[in-house]
């Protein structure tokens, strides 16, 4: 037994965690080594001091609260997924719609010059929202692009739309007016923000303008009364 053993195992020596043989050897060493005696006394005082650190208990309520908070965050994350799904569904719907119109264009082989509309017309943008649960107090904020007007709200650049969303598919119709002289080849962009229980998400919706002559009513889906199958098709 030497000083090194005591240095290396000082906590065990102080706390009596040695085998009986080790303890005997340590005791024998200590009788002849005042340095180790002093060091052990100091270390024992240090450990006693540390043991005086009191740790409060975590209450059962607090534990549950912590775990519940995670579940709340999970639900919020799920709401984000719903909004992403909403955006994806809307964009996908519009994409399919546009694809259909582009096919019409290609068949008719309309010269580009004829895609400048010569008179104003109105059409509708359908927003398809699919939610996993009822959301009675959702808020939809929509920024209207400069190129078009909202029918009945001419000059309005932003629309705040309190919406009560029901579980499943929801279709919101947005009547817009396309003034004369607007290039129909361009894509216009709606910026939308949906807020539910302080969880919100911004997204962009790109819409290509379509004149009545090109048959907006020929949309591949009837979304006024959507069926589950429609939404399966939408993606």
């Amino acid at each position: 037994m030497n000083c090194e053993f005591i240095h290396q195992n000082i906590n065990d020596v102080c706390q009596g965690n040695l085998t009986s043989l080790e303890q005997q050897k340590v005791d024998a060493h200590l009788t002849n080594c005042p340095e180790c005696q002093h060091m052990l006394e100091q270390h024992q005082a240090y450990l006693t001091k540390l043991a005086g650190l009191q740790t409060p208990e975590l209450s059962a309520d607090k534990k549950q609260q912590m775990l519940n908070k995670l579940n709340t965050n999970k639900a919020a994350s799920s709401n984000n997924s719903f909004i992403k799904g909403f955006a994806a569904a809307s964009v996908l719907f519009l994409s399919v719609f546009l694809f259909n119109q582009q096919q019409v264009n290609s068949v008719v082989e309309t010269p580009i010059a004829q895609n400048i509309n010569i008179e104003a017309f109105t059409t509708q943008v359908s927003l398809v929202i699919y939610v996993p649960e009822d959301m009675p107090d959702a808020d939809l904020q929509l920024q209207i692009p400069d190129e078009v007007e909202l029918v009945g709200y001419e000059g309005l650049a932003q629309l705040n739309w309190p919406v009560a969303l029901k579980k499943g598919a929801n279709v919101l119709q947005l009547p817009i007016e396309v003034p004369e002289g607007v290039d129909l080849n361009q894509t216009i962009q709606f910026i939308a923000n949906i807020n539910n229980n302080n969880t919100q998400k911004d997204f962009e919706l790109e819409v290509k303008l379509v004149s009545p002559q090109l048959g907006a009513a020929d949309s591949v889906f009837n979304l006024t009364n959507p069926t589950a199958n429609d939404f399966n098709n939408l993606g």
Partner: peptide
């Protein structure tokens, strides 16, 4: 492990509020 996490978090941070935040 929640009790142990909180106990060690308290020893790390030195106060209850920070320990709870850390565990969370």
């Amino acid at each position: 492990y929640l009790n142990l996490m909180f106990k060690v978090a308290y020893q790390y941070t030195g106060n209850t509020e920070d320990a709870e935040d850390l565990v969370q």
